[in-house]
Amino acid sequence: MVTEAHIRNLLRVVKDPEIPTVSLVDMGVVHRIDLPANGGVHVELIPTFSGCPAMSVMALEVEQVLRKAGFAPVTVAMNKQVAWHSNMISEEGRKGLLEHGLSPPPHYDPNTQDYALEAATCPHCGSTRTVLKNPFGPTLCRAIHQCLDCQETFEQFKPV
């Protein structure tokens, strides 16, 4: 009997192409898994950043992984009605971000914590004495900060 947990496990091999240490599952992008009686799988993904060009690649990879595992038919849909946010990244995902040299986003409430946008922990020395240098970075999900203790410039996965 195939379960949702089994599918989730299979999907752990699909990584964010721009952050190869974090899986889609840990990113919180796999929203829903349906297992109809015909032996197929339907996966619903939620997009992270609206303009993120990596989303279509990830959807394609999800489809390929499940086909390869013998499921048919496989359908993957994007649900744009659900708002993804950075609190959905799992503990495992946060570790993966750090492993990739990215400061994980602080837990964040957009209604009350605007100051959180400017706060980051240095992934090199762990200091919180950091300044936001640019709210935009090499990809939509990253901001550039600088550490006032070790002086290193670093990227943060943005809290959204």
């Binding site: 946010h85 946008l117 959204v160």
Partner: peptide, 10 residues
């Protein structure tokens, strides 16, 4: 709107 507002803060 809820989703876009999060991005727009930046």
């Amino acid at each position: 709107s809820e989703r876009f507002l999060r991005e727009l803060k930046y």
